[in-house]
Simulated scan of single mutants.
Amino acid sequence: MGLKEQITEDMKAAMRAKDTGKLGTIRLLTAAMKQKEVDERVELTDALVLAIIDKMVKQRKDSISQFEAGGRQDLADIEKAELVVLEAYMPAGLSEDEIKAEVQAAVAATGAAGPQDMGKVMGVLKPKLAGRADMTAVSALVKAALAS
C-alpha cells in the first residue's frame, strides 16, 4: 500500500473513531495532495507525498515558534498536535553520524574540492535524504566538509 492509500485509510479510521483532531489534520494533508495533483496534473508518488508532508511539518514548526514567541500557547498546542500526526507519516530520521557519513560519501563521489562545489554535493544528497534529515543541517555539514 502506498503512502497516499495509507493516508486515505487513516482518514477513514479517524472518521470512525470520531478523532476530530487527527481527522482535521489528515484532511488538510489530503487537500494539499489534491491541490498538487490538480495544479501540476501529476499522479502523486510516495516521494511527492513525502515532500508535501515535509513542507507541512516545516510550516507547523515555524508556526509553533511564532505562537510561543507571541505568548499564544493555545494555538501552539494545536500546531503541536498537527505536527505529531504529520510526523507519523515521515520515514525514520537519520542520526547525525549517518548524515555525516552520507555527506562524506557524496563529497567523495562528486570529487568536490571547495565551497564552489556545494551545489553538486547537495544535488546528490537531496534525493537520498529528503524527508529523513533536516536539509538545513545537511547544508551546514556540507559547507563545513567543503571548507576544510
Rank of each mutant, 00 (worst) to 15 (best):
E37F: 11
S95I: 01
D54L: 15
A32T: 05
L29S: 03
M118D: 01
A17F: 01
R60I: 10
P91Y: 11
Y89E: 03
G93L: 15
I78F: 04
T110Y: 00
R72D: 11
E98I: 08
K34W: 09
E82V: 00
T25C: 02
A112N: 03
G71L: 06
G70H: 05
D39I: 09
M33P: 05
G70V: 06
M56K: 03
M15E: 05
A92W: 07
S95T: 15
R60E: 15
Q66E: 09
M56Y: 02
D117K: 00
K4C: 08
S65A: 13
A17Q: 04
L86Q: 00
K4H: 11
M56F: 06
A17C: 06
D77K: 09
K55Y: 15
E9R: 14
A105Y: 05
E87G: 06
D39P: 07
A112P: 00
L75Y: 07
D74S: 11
K22E: 00
P91W: 05
K80Y: 04
A76H: 07
D54V: 11
I26F: 03
Q35R: 15
Q66G: 07
G24T: 03
E98T: 08
E37Y: 10
K58C: 10
E87R: 09
S63A: 09
E98R: 11
G21M: 02
D62W: 15
V84P: 00
Q59L: 14
Q6Y: 11
K61A: 08
A81F: 01
D77C: 03
L29T: 01
D19C: 01
A81N: 02
A81S: 05
K58L: 10
A88H: 15
T110D: 04
E40N: 12
I64W: 05
S65M: 09
M11D: 04
E68H: 05
V103F: 11
M15C: 02
L94F: 12
D54W: 08
A101R: 14
A47W: 14
A51P: 06
G93E: 14
I99M: 14
P115E: 09
L48H: 12
T8P: 01
T20H: 03
A108G: 05
A113M: 11
M118A: 10
A105L: 08
D46L: 15
V49N: 04
G24N: 02
L44S: 08
L50W: 09
D19I: 00
D117W: 01
E96V: 12
E96C: 07
Q6E: 11
D46R: 06
M11G: 05
A105W: 07
I64A: 04
M15H: 02
E98G: 10
D46Y: 12
Q35L: 11
A76V: 06
A88L: 04
D10Q: 04
E102C: 04
D46F: 14
K100R: 15
T25Y: 00
A32D: 14
A106V: 02
D19S: 00
A92Y: 06
Q6A: 11
Q116F: 08
E37R: 07
L29Y: 03
D54Y: 10
S63K: 13
Q59M: 10
S65F: 08
I99G: 01
Q73K: 14
E40Y: 13
Q6I: 07
G24E: 01
A105T: 07
E87S: 12
M56L: 15
K100G: 02
G93Y: 05
Q66Y: 12
R60K: 13
M33K: 07
S95M: 03
K36D: 06
K61N: 10
L86M: 04
G70D: 13
K55L: 07
K4I: 08
G21N: 07
R72I: 01
